[in-house]
């Protein structure tokens, strides 16, 4: 199910823990599917000197956190700001389709931690970061049931073919 790289990062996660004197902290969580992630940054001269994470979640959530810290470590924050969830997933040689939405939240936690750092620097309250919608597609694309792949009406509460509840996917 998981790639070798995912399993390697899951079995031997890098940069685990808390930075006591962190100057940027980002926490994201998804109570519905249950993954939670905290990123701690130690930034010196706008460069990520040290980064650590704590994660409550599945194999891919832990691997994502670990890979993210490897990508971000040593980067100036101007570059770290460009790191996306997709980039982390690609570095892990992909994640299962159904895990892309819920456990791939490492970059979100990092961006939140950077915003927290910047807010602290300016003496402001940290800004809220909004996670992307769980179900998204281009307006000109048709909408398909994620379970049985039959075409469905936008905003349909359940799939007429397989009866799957779609309310949570269409929020």
């Amino acid at each position: 199910m998981y790639s070798k790289t995912v399993m390697d990062h899951f079995r031997n996660p890098r940069n685990v823990g808390v930075i006591e004197d962190a100057n940027g902290v980002g926490e994201v969580g998804n109570p519905l599917c249950g993954d939670m992630m905290t990123i701690y940054l130690k930034i010196t001269d706008d460069v990520i000197d040290d980064i650590k994470f704590q994660t409550f979640g599945c194999g891919s959530a832990i691997a994502v956190s670990s890979m993210l810290t490897e990508i971000a470590k040593g980067k100036p924050i101007s570059e770290a700001k460009k790191i996306t969830n997709k980039e982390v997933a690609n570095a892990l040689e992909g994640l299962p389709k159904n895990k892309l939405h819920c456990s791939n939240l490492g970059a979100d936690a990092l961006q939140l931690a950077i915003k927290d750092y910047e807010a602290r620097k300016e003496g402001k309250a940290p800004a809220e970061i909004k996670r992307k919608e769980a179900h998204e597609h281009n307006p000109d694309e048709k909408c398909y049931c994620p379970y049985c792949d039959i075409e469905i009406q936008e905003e349909a509460p359940f799939c007429k073919a397989c009866q799957s509840d779609l309310v949570e996917d269409h929020h």
């Binding site: 519905l32 599917c33 599945c58």
Partner: peptide, 9 residues
């Protein structure tokens, strides 16, 4: 939920 296909609790 993470280990089910539906990802629901």
């Amino acid at each position: 939920a993470c280990a089910t296909g539906s990802l629901r609790a």
